[in-house]
Each structure stands twice: as C-alpha cells, then as structure tokens.
Write a protein that binds this DNA or RNA. Structure first.
Length: 288
DNA sequence: GGGTTAACCTGCGGGC
DNA sequence: TGCCCGCAGGTTAACC
C-alpha cells in the first residue's frame, strides 16, 4: 500500500539508478497499465524511445521522471512496484511494462498485481506554486513534506469543509500523500478521532495533526517505509521496516501503547479504521 | 458544485 | 479438497 514514504523510497532508488540514462525501448505487456494514455501503447512507447531521464520528482503518491519532452508519470496504486535489475533476469508474474536503456545496463520494470497503478507520458504544466508538474497531477495538493505546503491554508480549508476528518486527510486535493495507514497513525499520535467534523477543528488541533503526519512519515521514511508483504518494496525488491512501529493500524484488540485500552477497528468508507477508544474519543456529533 | 459511493482489480485466507 | 466470500485500498466516474 504505497503512500508518500514508500513512493519517496522508490523515487530515491530511481534517482540512483536511472537519472541521466536514455531509454532505448518500452514494452507494454498489459494494456491496463497505460489505460490513461490517450494514444494507447503505441503512443506511450513512441514517446519514450530515445528520451533521456532527468532527476525523478514526486508530489504526494505521484512520481515522475522528467524527460527531454514531458515526463513519464507513475502512480503505484495499491500494489505497483518499479524494479531495477539485470535485464536478463526472468520476468515477474505481474510484469506490466518494461523499459530498456541505450547503455544496455539494468532495466526498469513496472510490476503490478492488482493493476490499480498506471504509467503514462504526460506534458509538464505550471503548478500552483513556482514549479511544473505533469498535467494529471495539477489538481493534487502539495504534500506535507514539501516546503510549499501551507499549514494555515490547510486549516482554513478544513474549516470550510463539511465532512469527517479522516475523509479530509485522504482527499488528495486538500493534502496529498496520506493514505489509510498513515492517516490512522497520524490521528492516533494527534489523539483525534477519525469522525471529528472538520468545521469544528481548532487551530491547535490542526497544528498537532500536521506535526503528527510529518513525524510519522519521516519515521517511516527513515526505515524504508511500511511493508506488510512482498507487494511493497523498493527498486531493489527490498522491504521496509515501519510495520514494526505502527501504533494503531492493523492492531485491533491489541493494547494502546499509551493507555493500554484495546485498539478498536471501525469499518468506514469500505475500509478499516483503527483507533484508541480512550485516547481518541468519539465526537458527540460524528461526521462520517 | 460539494459530498458521497461504487467500481475497478487480483490473491489470499477463513469458513463450510 | 474445493468453492465462496470477505478483505486489502487509491482513484475516479457517477451519483445525489
């Protein structure tokens, strides 16, 4: 389940392995992997051959490799992996796209079991700040690790919304990069319930929440991200270790490390939410 | 037009 | 043994 820290781990790996190299060819093995490319596989491969890759960039869960013309944009979805390795190694079972380079060295493979992820070649457009982003990323908010993220604007946006706090945290147009795992972890750290109405949040609460989001993401990044199984790995196929540090997510009925109360699991938005019933009291008027 | 839900996918594990 | 169901969940189209 790649969220911001996992995508950043991949970005750093790509920076080491593909920056400055020139793409020789692209092979699409599953059409769904490039479903957002208007011109289909033919257009996708034509726009990659002969292009040189510069340093990879990221916003939230989106990752892109700037090219001489446009950018190769990637979203890993639920189970996507970008793997770098010996071009002669056997193909993975869920290999969707393969890129080779003119130097004949390591290739780059997009492997995605559940096919929620995708790749595409997109134009770069100006973003809301001073940089450029691929056009499909233009509607995404800055992520909390970017210097351009505006804490005060985020607070004001929450107060204008009429929805629940976790729903807002998962809304990539308000704050990007947060997914189900880090949303639960940040809410636990900030001692806020997921169903708190955003319009009632105080400034200190939002400050606490943003600090918690940044802390938990930085801690995950430091150990290579969260891996529950082999589905999430870095470009070398190695797993991260943050699962050991999770305080709420996946810990149903286990004691809260602060107060000992068993962690509770709620079903919400067709997915699980984990929280401490004592540290994160349910609001009187919950918003789901 | 903001808010909410369903659909898209595959593999795995539990229950019968 | 084998089948069915629930679950994992990021994004977006479609709905209200």
């Amino acid at each position: 389940m790649p969220e911001l820290p996992e995508v950043e781990v991949v970005r750093r790996g790509l920076d080491r392995w593909v920056t400055g190299r020139t793409i020789a060819s692209a092979e699409v093995l599953h059409p769904r992997a490039i479903r957002r490319q208007d011109g289909g596989a033919e257009d996708f491969t034509a726009r990659l051959a002969g292009r040189t890759v510069s340093a990879p960039r990221r916003r939230g869960k989106y990752l892109w490799l700037p090219l001489d013309d446009g950018a190769l944009l990637a979203h890993l979805g639920m189970s996507g992996q970008l793997l770098v390795g010996d071009p002669d190694r056997p193909p993975d079972r869920h290999l969707r796209v393969r890129l080779t380079f003119t130097d004949g060295g390591h290739d780059l493979r997009f492997v995605d079991q559940r096919t929620f992820g995708h790749l595409m070649v997109a134009e770069l457009v100006p973003d809301a700040f001073d940089g450029t982003v691929p056009e499909p990323v233009a509607h995404i908010a800055a992520d909390p690790l970017e210097p351009v993220f505006d804490d005060e604007a985020f607070y004001r946006a929450l107060r204008r919304r009429r929805t629940g706090l976790k729903r807002a945290l998962l809304d990539q147009t308000l704050i990007s990069g947060v997914g189900n795992i880090y949303a639960d972890e940040a809410l636990w750290r900030a001692r806020l319930h997921w169903a708190r109405a955003t319009e009632n949040l105080t400034r200190p609460e939002v400050t606490r929440l943003l600090a918690a989001v940044r802390e938990v993401m930085a801690a995950a990044l430091a150990v290579g991200g969260t891996s529950f199984d082999s589905l999430y790995v870095n470009v070398n196929g190695e797993s991260g270790y943050f699962e050991r540090s999770l305080e709420a997510y996946g810990r149903r009925d286990e004691p809260c490390s602060r107060c000992g109360t068993p962690i509770r699991r709620d079903v919400f938005m067709n997915r699980s939410s984990f929280s401490c019933p004592r540290c994160q009291p349910r609001p009187r008027r919950p918003r789901l």
